[in-house]
Structures are given as C-alpha cells and as structure tokens.
Design a protein around this nucleic acid. Structure first.
Length: 889
RNA sequence: GGGAGCUUAGCUCAGCUGGUUUAGAGCAUCUGCCUUACAAGCAGAGGGUCAUAGGUUCGAAUCCUAUAGCUCCCACCA
C-alpha cells in the first residue's frame, strides 16, 4: 500500500465519523458499568460554531473519549437552547428586512415565523460539532423548547409558585422608547456622552413661621443631568452626616415650575462630595431613586409615555419629547431664576443595541423567584467541595455572588420562549396552572363563579428568561417529568443512572447565570448536585488580546480552520495553551503545530509500516535496551498524564504526550531500532515497536480521534466494527526511575558528541572513538555506539591528551580523540570558563554549608544534598584541571 | 466604587506544603544539514535581576506588606 508522505485529514475524517455512527459507538444505555456523563452546554439553536464552542467541545470530547476508554459507560448528551432574546432578535431583524413589523403580527403569526427560522437554521451547529469529532450520543439530542422539555419548565414554574417562591413585583427595566419594548441588560450599550450637570434651585418651605406658610427666600440646590424629570420628583435626599446640608433636615422643598411640595429625606447612599450633596429623588425614572423611594416609602410618579413623550402626570410639557423638554425646561428654569449654573459633564448613557436610542429606565410589573432558600444548598455544595470548581479561584467569586444574591427576574417581554403559565381574571387577580383548563378550574374556585369561561381568562403575554429553562438541563434531558406529581410508579431509569453527571465544561462568564442555577435546581428537584466537577474554560482571544466577537470580525471560522489544518490539528491547537480558567490567546500557529504533529505521527507510522520482519535476524542489544527504556518512559508518561487529568490540566497532559511521541518515541526509540539501510529487522523489535505504537495511539485518541483511528486500523487486520474508540487506555502504576536516569546520561553524551561533530565539522557518517572515565552503565554502550556513530568505546582516558575533545556528564568524563588538530587556545578558554563557573558554584555551596544555622535548621536531606553538590562540583573541577594540564594550559 | 486574579525567556505558560546543581517546557529565533519516515523535517545552540521596593527566614520565583501595570466579574454614582 502506498502512503502519502503528508497526512491528509480531509480524506479520512468523514469516513471515520460515519463509521463510529454506523456502529453506534457514541450511544449509551444504562448498564452495570460505572457511568460517565456530560451534558453539553446547549448552544443557541440557530447559532453557528465559534471558537469558544470549539474549545469547550474539544475539552468535553477529550474527557468523554478518555472515560469511554477507561471502561466507563460514557454518555455525552447534545442539544440546543432556544435562546429567547438572541433568536427573537434574529427573527425580528429578518422580518424587518422583508418589511414586516413584529407589532403588526399576532403572537401566533410571529411564533410561526420563529419556528420556521428555527427549523431552517437549527441544527447547523450540531453538524459542525460532528466535523470536530464530537462523540455525542445523538440519539439523545434535546432542545429546551421540545414539548416534553417545555412541560417541565412550566411544571417547575407552577411548583415554585405553589411553594411561595414566585411572586410578582415592580422592577426597573431598560425601556426602548422607539422599539416600544423592554430590552435586557445585555442589549444595552453604554456610551460616554458629553452632557451637562444642571444646578437647580428648590425653594425651602418654611414651617412654624409666625407669618404662616409663606415661601422663604431660602433654597437648596440640586445637581442633575436630567432636568426634564423633575416633575417626577417625590423627595430631595441628603446624607445624614452632611454638615453643610444639616439645616435642611425635616424640611420640605418645592419642586420648581409645578410647585409640588416634597420632603427632605436622609440616606447614607448620598455622596456628600457630588454636586451640592443634595439629590433629587425620582423613583419612576432611576434605578437607585426607585430603591430609595421604596426604602423611604415615597410616591412614584411616572411622567413618561411609552414613546418617550411626557404624559399628563408631568402637568407641563405634556405630549412633548423628553429631549425637547430638556432644552425647554432649562430655559424656563432660567427665566424663573431657579437655575443656578450649568457645568459640562461627561457621563455614560445606555443606548439600545437595536434602535440606538437612549434607554429610559421604566418601572414595570415582573415575575420574580425568591433566591434565598434556593441558593443555600448550592452555595454550601461549592464551599464544602461537594462540587469542585476548576480552577478553584472561582470559589471566591462564586461565594461573593451567592452571598449577595438578589431575587431573579424571570419574565421577559418576548414571545419566543416558554409563556408564563399565569392567567388573569377580569378583576385583575390571577391564577397559576400548568394548563388553561386547570387555570379555569382554579379561577372558578377563586371567584366562586361557575359561569366563568376560558374566554374570560387572559394568559400572561410575557415569556420566561431562557435560563429558567436551561437551569433544568442536567435533569430534564434525562427525565422531563421532573418535578413529578409524586405519584409515579416507576422511577426514571436514565435519571437514576446518569444523574448526577460527572463533569460540566463551560465558560466562566455564565457561572452565575447558569452553573449556580443548575446547582439550585439540582438540589430542589433532583435530590442533589447536578455535576461533580465544573471545568471553567478560558475566554478565546485574538493575538491582540481582544475577545473574539462577531462585531470585531476577529474570530476565524472554525470550519475553515478544520479544512485547513484537519480536525485533529485544530483540536490540538485549541488544547495546547489553554489551562483551565486562563484566557486563550488564539493563534493559527497553534493549529499549524497541531497539523505538524499529525504529520509526524503519520510519518512515524509510515516508517514502522514499511518494516519487514526477518525471523533469522537476532535482536541487536541496542534495540532490546531501547525497548526497555521506552517501556519505562511510557509508564512514567501514563502516570504523569493520569495525574494531569485528575487535576484537569489537559494541556499539560497533551504536552507530555507530544514530547513522549515526538522526542522519546520518534527521535530516540525509532532512531535506535531503525535498521541500517538495506538491512532487515528482527521480529521481536518489530513486534515491540508496533505494540508501543498501539499504546501511543490509545493515549492519543481522546485528543486526536481521527488520525489515531486511521492508523490503528492500518496497524493490523481488524474485524469490522472494531475501533480504537473502545480499546482500554494503557495502565501503569510504577516505573523504573534508574533506567530512565541511566538513559539520560547516554542521551547527554550523545548530544555532546554531536555538538563536537558540529563545531569541528565532522560529518555524522564519520565514525569516532570514545573514552569513558568514571561511572557509567556499560550495558548501554551498544546503544551509545550506534547513536553517536562510534567505532569503539574504551575505558579511562586517552594517553595523549592533545587533540582530544572532552566533556562531562555528571561527574563522568568523556574523551573524543580527533583526527584534526584542536585550536588549543579556544579549548583552553572554554575549559577556563567552565572551570570558573564550577568554582563559583562550589563556592556558593560551601558558603551555604559554612553557615551553622543552615546546617542546624535545614532538614538532613537538604544538607546531605548540598554536600553531594559540593563533592560533585569538586570532582568536576578536578577533571577540568586535568584536561587543562593535558592541553598544557 | 466593591470583589477576584494576574505580572517568570521574543510569545504562551509550568514551577504544588519555601531547599532538588546558578529557574523549566512548547513555539519562535540562530547555526549546520534535502541523512532512503517526515524540510509540516533532522542535529545542535543561544536566550530570564522571576514587575518594583521593603520585610519574614539559615534559605524566597514561592510567604507577608506596599507600589506600579494588566485582566475579569458585579454595581455603576445624580
């Protein structure tokens, strides 16, 4: 069989993915084995794969494939999220491009468009994951708006409501006066704006005056950027410890132009240094003011219409736009003598991402979940390490957030999502139920009106926050009947077997949005934590350190990368420099490195594949030695990699494997056992080499599934249905450290001889002689001889020290007689430099040992080690001095 | 403003409870090689006051304090 000199991924990747699918190797059913479960963080249903997904899913696939090869029943559940905000925004934009406005559609019509969009674009991302090699159990594909899943979301809402954990309340939302809708915090873009700070005089009302309630000359000054909202003022606030405003305590002031009397309140929220230290309080139009208002029980006066014009509650400027009013009111205040001054002022203002108009904070009725009790077990689980976060530094952040948790606003003014299962009665009261029929029953009971019809009920128009469905993900993908009625006869087998899942791999920015809430849901409805370990990935950045985003256009298309470098190459590129929790500065050079590694593996295979065994050939000593050494090296690597995996240090595990394969296996082992040109190979060595290759492929498979499978299938005849995917991982629990260190001495000696060749211009082909003086494992001489191309190895030093290149490994001296004349001066200088270095080294060690406190306090081992350092150093000095003497230096 | 974290070679990072020759790796760089597996390669080499300043200690990249710079999360100041 003819094999190309370059590995060609595109020829084999689809073939093997189809093969794995054909034999259902990704599929999992509960059995007696230990389960290993991952649920995918569901990407947006209509999204496309970006680099963050690449990283995230590569990590998951590595973990899943490894667990599968460790004999666990591995199950990776795929699926997508309906992503209400993002998807609805896309649908609205698409309709707009066709000249259709959402406002002109009924809910049903809009949802029809949305489903059409979802059917058209949904699932693209899952197909892309297949290109990456993701070994998901596609039979378990899920979607947060599936019928069953949706029922579970509604059931959870009803359950929480019945437990008294859901309530309605007023909340400040980001109102877009142009789109006439609330937008989420994520859709608000904060921009710096050059504005002004207006200082407005509020007259102080004089009480207890002997002359009655007459207006005084006295006033306080309030600084504001939004003078047009003063008609909504219901208080002026000062700091309780503010001496310069102390005279205002207990007074009331008059709101200019409309002459409303409002109280002076005191609160520590006020910044004494800002402006005059007096804050106008407008609860309807500022988040902080609203909180102040709530605290001090102030009246709330909403002076704006939905389109940003003023309403009749403003009393003046009714019907005019907020920005027109701002200009006009400043003039009017000035005329009235109530404007003290205007200062230029730079501040940030929120703008709507969709319409680019200034966001108006607006109060509205929303649904909330009480978080207090729900959050307790979720906080505890992480703090007592029942659930582990990797890296652990996120524990602090997590605690900080959980301890200051606020109630969760779960309603969204959107149509694409799970509609809130609340029905309003004509009298304004409401009932909560899973279905309309049930709601009607409840409503009839509540009103004691049996004639009440379903047409009298109006279901809430809002839908639920996306996270309110995705927090159930690790439960509902296995059992959408949770929370059940408590009357189920058969417990759900899948949930029992796969839950809790093993590892969750996700981005740190959704630690609170998603991870924390899944923990809460797990304890609330599934009796315990939803996952044992949370691996928080880094954020993928470009080489300038910017977050990759569509807007910047700095994100490469993952599929193009796969086409260019192969899936295995890209996977390796993603994993090479991505320790958990650290940012990943992405560079295509990393994929190139991955591709090069594939090529290296491929060519190593070509070499081994081309060898023919000859039973008449006896195994050379060096080949046997190389085999013994590589076996130990492999064992050590397996142990080290297991340790790395235990700590979720995937990139380090991969780097160890990279070096094991490239350096130890290719550069050393294969080079040692490689027969001379034209010579045959003994069957023992060939068998061993193939066995090693097999082990290496097993180690490689979780990281690079395609190339490893391709080569494994070539390595020996296979039955159909066989796959590397399901072979056990190599196992080791110990290794021979002496064997490795003896070999290392040989490696260093060989490298030194090669350096001599290079500096002396001696070709590798030309054999050299070698003298070895000192301790050395002589059994390894044949190996040394082959790799350094030595004609002979002799004990002790040469009699004539001239024209001999010398070097040290440890304390062992090596001499290479050279046919050419040495540049004595150069050699002497080199030896002097080395001597000086060694002398300084020994001096520093001596200094340390002379210190009585060191000898007293330091552990015995450490002192003994220092003594050995001294002895070795002195031995080396002696050797160098001898060499200098031999050169007559 | 509150919280968390980071700063080690040109780049990306290891370096765990202080002692393991005078700090390691990969990539990049430089030198020499088209050696019949691989130039997407082989062989070799160079490169670091461990951000700065103090402190603790017999001993500090490692522990403590301050300073500077950077990153992230939360709240965003009328």
């Amino acid at each position: 069989m003819e094999l190309s000199a370059k590995y060609n991924p595109s020829e084999i990747e689809d073939k093997w993915y189809a093969y794995w699918m054909e034999y259902r190797l990704f599929h999992s059913d509960p059995d007696e084995r230990e389960p290993y479960t991952i649920v995918i963080p569901p990407p947006n249903v209509t999204g496309v794969l970006h680099m963050g997904h690449m990283l995230n899913n590569t990590i998951q696939d590595v973990l899943v494939r490894r667990a599968r090869m460790q004999g666990k029943n591995a199950c990776w559940v795929p699926g997508t999220d309906h992503a209400s905000i993002a998807t609805e925004a896309k649908v609205v934009a698409k309709l707009a491009s066709e000249g259709i406005r959402k406002a002109d559609l009924t809910r049903e019509q809009f949802l029809e468009y949305a489903w059409e969009w979802t059917r058209k674009h949904g699932g693209i991302i899952m197909e892309q994951l297949k290109k990456l090699g993701a070994s998901c159990d596609w039979d378990r594909m899920n979607f947060t708006m599936n019928e069953a899943y949706s029922r579970s979301v509604v059931r959870v809402f009803v359950d929480l409501f019945n437990k008294g954990k859901i309530y309605r309340g007023v909340r400040m939302v980001n109102w877009d006066p142009k789109a006439l809708t609330a937008v989420s915090d994520e859709e608000v873009i904060h921009k710096e704006e050059q504005g002004a700070l207006y200082y407005i005089k509020y007259k102080i009302k004089q009480h207890n005056s002997p002359f009655g309630d007459r207006e005084a000359l006295d006033y306080c000054v309030v600084a504001t950027t939004r003078p047009e909202t003063i008609m909504g003022d219901t208080a002026v606030a000062i700091h309780p410890n503010d001496p310069k405003n102390a005279h205002l305590r207990g007074k009331t002031v008059i709101v200019p132009l409309i002459n409303r009397e409002v109280p002076i309140i005191e609160d520590e929220y006020i910044d004494i240094e800002f402006g005059t230290g007096c804050l106008k309080v407008t609860p309807a139009h500022d988040v902080n003011d609203y909180l102040l208002g709530e605290k001090h029980r102030l009246e709330v006066i909403d002076i704006f219409n939905n389109d940003g014009t003023l309403n009749e509650k403003a009393q003046i400027y009714v019907g005019q736009d907020r920005f027109v009013v701002r200009k006009q009111i400043v003039k009017d205040l000035e005329v009235a003598g109530l404007l003290e001054k205007v200062e230029p002022y730079t501040h940030t203002v929120g703008f709507s991402e969709r319409t680019d108009v200034a966001i108006e904070p607006k109060l509205s009725m929303q649904w909330f979940v009480k978080m207090g009790e729900l959050s307790e077990p979720a906080l505890e689980a992480v703090m007592n390490d029942e659930v582990m976060l990797y890296p652990a530094k996120f524990k602090n952040t997590y605690r900080h957030w959980m301890e200051n948790i606020k109630d969760w606003c779960i309603s969204r003014q959107l149509w694409w999502g799970h509609r809130i299962p609340a029905w309003y009665l004509p009298d304004g009261r409401f009932v909560v139920a899973e279905e309309e029929a049930e709601a009607l029953k409840l409503a009839r009971a509540m009103t004691k009106n049996k004639a009440l019809a379903s047409t009298d009920l109006q279901q809430d128009n809002d839908c639920l926050d996306t996270w309110f469905s995705s927090w159930l993900w690790p439960i509902s993908v296995f059992d959408p009947e949770v929370p059940g009625s408590g009357e189920e006869v058969d417990p759900n087998i899948d949930l029992q077997y796969y839950y809790p899942t093993s590892d969750l791999v996700t981005a740190p920015e959704i630690l609170f949005f998603w991870v924390a809430r899944m923990l809460m849901a797990g304890y609330e409805w599934a009796g315990g934590y939803p996952f044992k370990n949370v691996y928080l990935t880094g954020i993928v950045r470009d080489h300038l350190g910017r977050k990759m985003s569509k807007q910047l256009g700095n994100s490469p298309d993952p599929i193009e990368l796969i086409n260019k470098y192969g899936a295995d190459g890209v996977r390796m590129g993603m994993l090479l420099t991505s320790p958990a929790g650290n940012d990943l500065p992405f560079d295509e050079a990393l994929c190139e490195q991955g591709r090069n590694f594939c090529n290296k593996i491929w060519n190593a295979f070509r070499l081994v594949n081309g060898w023919q065994a000859d039973d008449t050939v006896v195994q050379p000593a060096h080949s046997a030695q190389a085999g013994e050494w590589f076996k130990e090296s492999l064992r050590k690597a397996v142990i080290d990699m297991n340790d790395d995996f235990d700590k979720y240090r995937l990139s380090e595990a991969l780097m160890k494997l990279y070096k094991l394969f490239w350096d130890d296996f290719c550069a050393w082992y294969l080079e040692i056992v490689k027969p001379q040109a034209g010579q045959a190979m003994d069957s023992t060595t060939l068998g061993t080499a193939r066995l090693f290759f097999d082990y290496l492929l097993r180690l490689l498979h979780p990281f690079m599934p395609f190339i490893s499978e391709e080569i494994w299938q070539h390595l020996r005849p296979r039955q159909s249905g066989d796959s590397l995917m399901i072979q056990p991982q190599p196992y080791a629990d110990s290794f021979d450290a002496d064997c490795l260190s003896h070999f290392e001495v040989i490696q260093q000696a060989i490298a030194s001889i090669r350096t001599i060749r290079q500096t002396k211009n001696i070709l590798p082909k030309e054999p050299l002689e070698l003298y070895v003086k000192g301790e050395m494992d002589e059994r390894l001489f044949p190996l040394l001889q082959k790799m350094a191309n030595l004609s002979v190895i002799r004990p002790d030093g040469p009699e004539d020290g001239r024209n001999v290149a010398a070097f040290l490994v440890g304390t062992t001296e090596f001499f290479v007689p050279l046919g050419v004349l040495l540049n004595v001066e150069e050699e002497v200088k080199k030896l002097h430099d080395d001597l000086e270095y060694q002398q300084q080294f020994v001096a520093s060690v001596k200094q340390k040992l002379k210190n009585e406190k060191f000898v007293q306090h330091a552990p015995e081992q450490v002192v003994a080690f220092e003594r050995k350092k001294q002895a070795d150093g002195e031995a080396r000095i002696k050797a160098i001095e001898e060499q200098l003497a031999a050169l007559g230096g």
